[in-house]
Amino acid sequence: MSESSGKTGLSRPQVAWRAAQDLVDGSVVNLGIGIPEMVADFVPDDRQIIYHTENGVLGFGPRPAPEDEDPDLINAGKKPVSLLPGASFFHHADSFAMIRGGHLDYCILGAMQVSEDGNLANWSTGAPDAIPAVGGAMDLVAGVPNVFIITDHVTRKGQPKLMKACTYPLTAVGVVKRVFTDYGVFDVTEKGFRITEIAPGLTVSEVEAKTDAPLEISDHLKLIETPSNI
């Protein structure tokens, strides 16, 4: 184990870069608030991705220069965005018709826990003094066909987040397709988590030790090679 040598595995930008490689050209994608938003920075230049935000914009772009910000043009994280050619606006019921009706291709969200049967917990710890807040997460994972998760492999206290069963309140049952962590890439299959790619400097047994659920190891297990500038 290499715990004494500090942080192991991929950095957060590297995890976002790795997730971006799996978005197919021409897709419509909803990125969750926080780390998932970073994915947009790493989509290969030869792919066109259209970004959807649940507050009613399709085809938005990066944060504009401060003088071009408009408080009426924000994303779901309530941050200013710009518009790309071909953008459109729509009201909330239409926005969630896009989501629930299966018209988006991917959503990428963060997680508190994911279970081996694809259950997701990402909205509440269930603590009695917590202010419950769910936003659009339950709708996204119920309606978007490809639900990808980006998360640290373990909590700040070192507890696993890839679980046999979630202990936090669920966001949805059986929806997660793939999980990208600082330790590797994990598909959710009928048999549970399958590790398909592993971060440099880690062994499978080290990953298993930090995972609550058993891991199936892909016959084609690959080492993740990230560009040197990320």
Partner: peptide, 26 residues
């Protein structure tokens, strides 16, 4: 949930008393 909120409002304006949704199941 945000989409359920939007659809409940839309339904309220459209004369639809209730609806079934996959959101929040389980």
């Amino acid at each position: 949930p945000q989409g359920t909120l939007a659809e409940r409002i839309r339904a309220g304006g459209a004369g639809i008393p209730a609806f079934y949704t996959p959101t929040s199941l389980g």
